[in-house]
Design a binder for these strands. Structure first.
Length: 612
DNA sequence: CTGGGGAAGGGGCCC
DNA sequence: AGGGCCCCTTCCCCA
């Protein structure tokens, strides 16, 4: 916990022999912590987002790192951390975060007093030894048995994973309320020194405030209502002003019903999570001035960069199509659409992997988070080697569309923030469907061997050399699967005009520069080094993962001047603009049909060429 | 009901 | 890292 180390450091400094009593500021650490907590409640200078279940918490990397070795390793590489929801629930994490920032255990909004068993589990998982010790003492005092093992869903009072909502589909904000009469409740109360005693447990105080959302988003109903009038509970059940994260991407969208909650992201969040693409032209629906004002009130400074592209319409709404019809919400329907299709009947990632060591991998499609993600949302990045550190989907389902299957990739371990050992295993969730590996829940993706512990798996993974991770079967890459694929091969064929001296060591492709060649070579690797921190999907390129994240967060920087429709990519906007201009540059050479999209021409050509 | 077209979302990958 | 383009896919509309 932060107060401990902070206090210790202060004492170490203040206790030096050359320091007289007059040099000591007894309240320094307390004030420092107080300030940090106030900044956290305002989202000020928060540089990391922690997602737990359907909740988002903001915090300071330094504080987390000072509190926990686990966090220390996570925040080193990631701005967005997902915690294993089987180890810590959002409610519990709220308590833990408050504890980190205050040194006190604050009451949750649950009707009962804190469940020290679940707290202990979470504290152990997050490597917060002092909190764990406190919980143990409380449990011991209460005469309850305790252990550091996971308590499972029952202990968390949560439904089984299969019944839980996809984190990606519904994410709720957990920002402490900013403007409230009880704002700064921590400040108004004596912060006990972190003495590691039971006095740290603080029940019955008025610190409920810290357990509630900041209401960072502008309440659609009332402009600033979210600042003071909306309170979000930590159990995710409160409707109120909790909304879908979502940006009003259409400019004319009606607000979404409150039944579809989501996170309120501040400009800080957006800056952290969005790309730096801000090239969309000014659109007819400029962000309401109130929004920017709200951001200033929300703890950010007016000078802080605000990603207006993403944040301009922070209230939730259903984007509309050009015709005014409600468009599907990306936040909800896109993941659903993506993960519900082509669902194998009883397939599990491991079941499919049983086809062989290099066999089909957990698919990128047809993977419903709600019932397929083995371990839900997991911390990722170069975190500690365990116990539950890595996201699922280390590799892609074998291409079902006749691709050559060479998409799977890996990395050399010095990229993407994930070490070689850390990024390449998959933890099988306890109690999740079938476990073909028996007790060996930690499975090495490249060789499909199971291990009973993350430590053993890590040790094993280290034994893999990069070379081993290449797909050796030459035939897998020798032939394209279809015409388009072959055309692509042709396009990359060496040309007399442009020498392409760098040849892929696996296939025949050549490149003009070695970096591109290396990038391509990674596509032959089995593993995907870039996991999505929201859904766990793995990508071969960081840019693809970033782009994918944008779709999660509904960040659409590119707006159409004509209809206000927004897109995640410039290319999409360019393509879309042809709808308004009537330009149809793609012509079928067989029938003369013209199309606005090349892909539709290709689809059309298939109609010409298909046997039917 | 079905097939085709329009439009759009998403991932792969090269530059 | 970002842009651009390719491909696959889906949804919707309409004939």
């Amino acid at each position: 916990m932060v107060s401990g180390p902070l206090a210790l450091r202060w004492c170490a400094w203040a206790g030096r022999g050359d320091m007289g009593p007059d040099m000591e500021l007894p309240s320094h650490s307390k004030q420092l912590l107080l300030q940090l907590n106030q900044q956290r409640t305002k989202g000020f200078l928060c540089d990391v987002i922690i997602m737990v279940e359907n909740s988002i918490f903001r915090a300071h990397k330094n504080v987390l790192a000072a509190s926990s070795i686990y966090f220390k390793s996570l925040v080193l590489h990631d701005n967005l951390i997902n915690l294993d929801t089987d180890m810590v629930s959002s409610t519990v994490f709220q308590q833990i975060l408050d504890f980190i920032y205050t040194g006190k255990l604050l009451p949750s909004d649950q009707p009962t007093e804190p469940n020290f068993s679940t707290l202990l589990t979470a504290a152990s998982y997050l490597q917060l030894p002092e909190l764990a010790a406190l919980c143990r003492r409380k449990l011991k005092r209460a005469g309850k048995p305790f252990g550091s093992g996971r308590v499972g869903a029952a202990g968390m009072g949560r439904p089984p994973r299969s019944q839980r909502l996809s984190t990606a589909s519904v994410i709720q904000a957990r920002y402490p309320r900013l403007v409230d009469g009880r704002k700064g409740a921590h400040a108004s109360q004596e912060l006990p020194q972190a003495k590691g005693s039971d006095e740290e447990f603080f029940l019955g105080g008025s610190n409920q405030e810290s357990m509630h959302g900041l209401g960072l988003a502008v309440c659609p109903a009332g402009g600033e209502a979210g600042l003071g009038g909306c309170s979000s509970s930590t159990n995710g059940s409160s409707g109120g002003c909790e909304q879908e994260l979502g940006l009003d991407l259409s400019k004319k969208s009606p607000p979404l019903p409150p039944a579809t909650p989501g996170p309120h992201l501040t400009p800080d969040d957006l800056a952290q999570l969005s790309d730096s693409q801000h090239s969309s032209p000014p659109s007819a629906s400029a962000p309401p001035a109130a929004n920017s004002a709200s951001y200033a009130e929300l703890g950010g400074t007016p000078d802080e960069p605000v990603d207006l592209e993403g944040a301009e319409d922070s209230h939730l709404s259903l984007p509309e199509g050009p015709g005014g019809q409600p468009r599907k919400s990306l936040w909800h329907s896109a993941p659903k659409k993506e993960w519900s299709k082509k669902e194998p009947a009883a397939g599990s990632p491991f079941e499919r992997r049983e086809a062989g060591p290099m066999g089909p991998c957990p698919g990128e499609e047809g993977e419903g988070l709600g019932d397929r993600v083995p371990n839900g949302i997991l911390a990722s990045g170069g975190g500690p080697s365990g116990p539950y550190g890595e996201p699922p989907y280390p590799c892609k389902e074998e291409e079902e569309n006749g691709k050559d299957g060479s998409e799977d990739s890996g990395q050399s371990g010095n990229e993407g923030g994930s070490g070689h050992a850390g990024a390449h295993y998959l933890f099988w969730q306890e109690g999740y469907e079938t476990v073909p590996y028996g007790d060996n829940l930690y499975v090495c993706i490249p060789c499909a061997k199971g291990f009973p512990s993350s430590e053993q798996l890590n040790a094993h993974v280290e034994t893999h050399t990069e070379e081993e991770l290449f797909i050796k079967e030459e035939g897998a890459y020798e032939t394209g699967s279809g015409g388009a694929e072959e055309e692509a091969e042709d396009l990359s064929a060496p040309s007399a005009a442009e020498p392409r001296p760098f040849k892929c060591s696996v296939c025949e492709k050549t490149y003009k520069d070695p970096a591109t060649m290396r990038q391509h070579e990674k596509t032959h690797w089995l593993m995907r080094p870039f996991p999505c921190n929201i859904c766990g999907k793995m990508f071969t390129q960081r840019g693809t993962m970033t782009r994918h994240m944008r779709s999660h967060l509904d960040l659409k920087p590119f707006a159409c001047d004509e209809c206000g429709m927004r897109f995640t990519r410039q290319y999409r906007l360019t393509e879309h603009m042809r709808v308004h201009s009537g330009e149809k540059p793609y012509e079928c050479h067989l029938c003369g049909g013209k199309f606005t999209q090349q892909r539709n021409l290709i689809s059309h050509l298939r109609m010409h060429t298909s046997p039917s």
